[in-house]
C-alpha cells in the first residue's frame, strides 16, 4: 500500500466505550451472554405486558417511558385509526402501489412508501414543521398569528396550494373535509389539549380565506397534546410515518398480487416531453 503524502492527524475526540439505552434491559441466560432470558421495557417485563397493553399504550410507553393516562391513550388510539389509511391517492400510497405492481421485492414496499411519506408536503416533514409552528404560537392570539403568517407566507400563484403555516392551508385549492372532521372528533376527547384547541381557533380564522386544517396539522396538534416528555417535532414526524404504515402496506401488497398491467401505465400520447428535454 502506498502512503499518502497529505498531512493528516487523528483528533482526540472522546467516544463512549459502550452503547447506552434507557429503554430496554435484557437479562442474559446463565452460561450464554448472547441470549436474553428476560427483557424489560422501561422496567416492565415485556412478556407480562403482552396481555395487558394495547399497541398504542406500548408505543407511548416506548416513547415516554411511562404508561399513558386513559385520556392520552384514547387520543392516540383514535388518531392512529385515521392515520393508518392515508388513502389511495396519497403519493406515498401510490409509491407503495407502484412498488407492488412493479414486482419490487415485497420487503421493500414499506421502506419505499415510508420514505415517500417522509416529505415536507403532507408527510413527516410537514408534521414536524407544524409542531414547531404550533409550539411557537400556542400562547398567541390565533388571528394575530394568521396575520403574521399571511405576511410571511403570502398566497402563491396559481397551480399551487396555499400552505399558510405547516399543517394549515388548502388542499387542491379547497379545505380538506377529512382533516376538519377528524380534528372536530379529536377536539371533544378528554385528551384534547391546548394544541388541538388553538389549532381549531386558527382553522376557524383560516376559514375566511378558504383555508383550514391539513392532516399533518391535526396529527401535529395531537402529538403535542399527548404531552409526553421527549415528544420533539421530529419524534412526531417519525410517529406519523409509523402510523401510516398499515394503509401503505395494504395497498402495496394488494397490487403485488395483481399483474403488471393492472396498474396504469401512461400512454405515449399522454406523456409530454417538454421543450428543454427534447433531443
Amino acid at each position: 500500500m502506498k502512503k499518502s503524502s497529505h498531512q493528516e492527524r487523528r483528533r482526540d475526540d472522546a467516544f463512549a466505550e459502550r452503547i447506552a439505552n434507557a429503554i430496554c434491559e435484557e437479562v442474559a441466560v446463565e452460561g450464554n451472554p448472547y441470549l436474553a432470558q428476560a427483557s424489560y421495557c422501561h422496567g416492565y417485563d415485556v412478556l407480562s405486558l403482552m396481555d395487558k397493553l394495547s399497541f398504542e399504550e406500548m408505543v407511548l410507553l416506548l416513547l415516554q417511558g411511562e404508561l399513558p393516562t386513559p385520556a392520552r391513550r384514547e387520543l392516540l388510539r383514535q388518531l392512529m385509526i385515521v392515520l393508518a389509511t392515508p388513502g389511495p391517492r396519497h403519493p406515498a400510497t401510490r409509491a407503495a402501489m407502484s412498488a407492488g405492481a412493479g414486482k419490487s421485492d415485497p420487503r421493500h414496499i414499506l421502506p419505499i412508501a415510508l420514505t415517500i411519506m417522509g416529505g415536507d408536503h403532507l408527510g413527516a416533514g410537514e408534521v414536524a414543521n407544524s409542531m414547531v409552528f404550533l409550539r411557537y404560537h400556542l400562547g398567541k392570539d390565533p388571528r394575530e398569528s394568521l396575520r403574521e403568517q399571511m405576511r410571511l407566507q403570502p398566497k402563491p400563484q396559481e397551480g399551487s396550494d396555499w400552505v399558510v403555516a405547516p399543517g394549515f392551508g388548502s388542499c387542491f385549492a379547497g379545505v380538506d373535509p377529512m382533516a376538519q372532521q377528524c380534528a372536530e372528533r379529536l377536539l371533544v376527547l378528554p385528551g384534547a389539549g391546548k394544541a388541538l384547541r388553538w389549532g381549531a381557533l386558527f382553522a376557524q380564522a383560516l376559514a375566511e380565506q378558504g383555508l383550514g386544517w391539513r392532516m399533518p396539522g391535526v396529527a401535529a396538534a395531537c402529538f403535542l397534546d399527548l404531552n409526553i416528555s421527549g415528544m420533539t417535532p421530529w419524534v412526531g414526524g417519525c410517529l406519523f410515518q409509523l402510523l401510516s404504515a398499515p394503509g401503505l402496506l395494504a395497498h402495496g401488497l394488494a397490487y403485488r398480487l395483481k399483474p403488471l398491467n393492472a396498474y396504469p401505465f401512461i400512454r405515449d400520447d399522454q406523456y409530454i416531453i417538454e421543450s428543454d428535454a427534447q433531443l
Partner: peptide
C-alpha cells in the same frame, strides 16, 4: 421516463418534497 415504476416513485418523492 416517469412512467417506469422506479422512476415514478422518485417523481412521487419530488412532488411531496422528500
Amino acid at each position: 421516463d416517469a412512467r417506469i415504476w422506479c422512476n415514478q416513485i422518485g417523481a412521487f418523492g419530488g412532488t411531496v418534497r422528500v
